[in-house]
Design a protein around this nucleic acid. Structure first.
Length: 267
DNA sequence: CAATGATCCTGTCCGC
DNA sequence: TGCGGACAGGATCATT
C-alpha cells in the first residue's frame, strides 16, 4: 500500500524510465482501470514525456500535446518497466508502449488503481481537493491547529483524511503517532499546540526517513511483515507485538482500519 | 459541514 | 485436503 514515500520512489523510477521517450500507445486489459477525459482528441499518442510530479499519493505525468496522465496505485498497484516482448502478465491491467520498444506495465491485483488521461488544462477537474503536503515548509503546528480546530473525530482518522493532509496512509500514521507519543483515539481538536509541534516535526521526520530508504514498504503489505532489514527496523508499532520499550502493543479498529499503538507510551 | 459506515477487490491465512 | 470467513485498506459515496 504505497503511501507518500513509496509514491515518491516510484515517480523517481518512472521518470528515469520515461526520460527522452514518448508513449506510442496504451493497452488496456481491465475495464475501468483507464479513465479518459471526454475533451481529449481521439488520438493522443504519440506523446512526448515532459515532466512528472507527485501530489499526495497521486502520480502526475505531463506530456506534449496538452496531455496529462494521473496514476493512483491505491493498495496494490505497481508500475513496472519491462522491455520484454511478452504479453500481459498476471494482474496486468494496462500497459504503456514506449519508444525504444520498452513497456511500462500497470499491475494491480485488487484493481482499485486508476489511470486517468486528461487534458493538462483539465487536471484540476480530475484531481480531488487535497490538503497540504506534509513536507511543505508551511506544514507546521499552526496548520495542524487550523485543520483540527473543533474536530471531534480521533486524530488517527483525521490524519488519514487526504483533504486535510495529502499523502499519509495507515502505516505511517500509526508510526507518526507513536513517535509523537499521541494516543490515536484523542479527538483532534483537543490536542494542545505544544503537542502539535511535535506531531508536525515527527510527521516530517518519519516521511523523510522513509523516503531516504526509498519507501521500503513497497510490495504487498503481507510482505511488510516478513521483510528483513530497513523497513522492518523502521516500524515501531505497526503489526508489532511490543513497542521498542517492550510494552504490549494494542490493536483497535478506527474507521474500519487497524490502529496499532502503545497505551503506555501514547497518552 | 462533520462523522460514520458500506463498498469495491483478490490473495493469503487461519481454524475446523 | 478443502472450505468458509476474516483480513488487508485508499477513496468514494450514502446516511445520519
Amino acid at each position: 500500500m504505497p503511501e507518500l514515500p513509496e509514491v515518491q520512489t516510484i515517480i523517481d523510477g518512472v521518470t528515469t524510465e520515461l526520460m527522452g521517450k514518448e508513449i506510442r500507445s496504451l493497452d488496456c486489459f481491465h475495464p475501468g482501470t483507464v479513465i479518459r477525459d471526454p475533451e481529449l482528441p481521439e488520438e493522443v499518442f504519440p506523446a512526448e514525456f515532459i515532466s512528472s510530479r507527485r501530489r499526495g499519493k497521486y502520480i502526475i505525468l505531463n506530456f506534449s500535446g496538452d496531455l496529462s496522465v494521473i496514476v493512483h496505485l491505491r493498495m496494490t498497484g505497481k508500475l513496472v518497466a519491462d522491455s520484454s516482448q511478452e504479453g500481459p502478465v498476471n494482474h496486468e491491467r494496462a500497459c504503456f508502449m514506449l519508444s525504444g520498444s520498452s513497456k511500462l506495465r500497470f499491475i494491480d491485483i485488487r484493481t482499485f488503481g486508476k489511470i486517468i488521461l486528461c487534458k493538462t488544462k483539465n487536471l484540476g477537474k480530475f484531481m480531488p481537493d487535497l490538503g497540504m503536503e506534509p513536507l511543505a515548509d508551511e506544514f507546521d503546528a499552526r496548520y495542524l491547529e487550523k485543520i483540527l480546530k473543533n474536530r471531534k473525530a480521533p486524530i488517527k482518522t483525521l490524519m488519514l483524511d487526504q483533504k486535510l493532509i495529502a499523502g499519509l496512509g495507515n502505516i505511517y500514521v500509526n508510526e507518526i503517532l507513536y513517535r509523537s507519543k499521541l494516543n490515536p483515539t484523542v479527538p483532534g481538536g483537543e490536542i494542545p499546540l505544544s503537542k502539535l509541534k511535535i506531531l508536525a516535526k515527527e510527521t516530517k521526520e518519519v516521511l523523510r526517513e522513509a523516503i531516504s530508504k526509498n519507501g521500503t514498504s513497497i510490495s504487498d503489505f503481507r510482505n511488510v511483515d516478513n521483510k528483513t532489514g530497513e523497513f522492518q527496523k523502521f516500524l515501531r508499532v505497526y503489526q508489532k507485538e511490543t513497542c521498542p520499550k517492550g510494552h504490549p502493543v494494542s490493536r483497535i479498529k478506527q474507521a474500519q482500519r487497524s490502529t496499532y499503538f502503545c497505551p503506555v507510551c501514547q497518552k
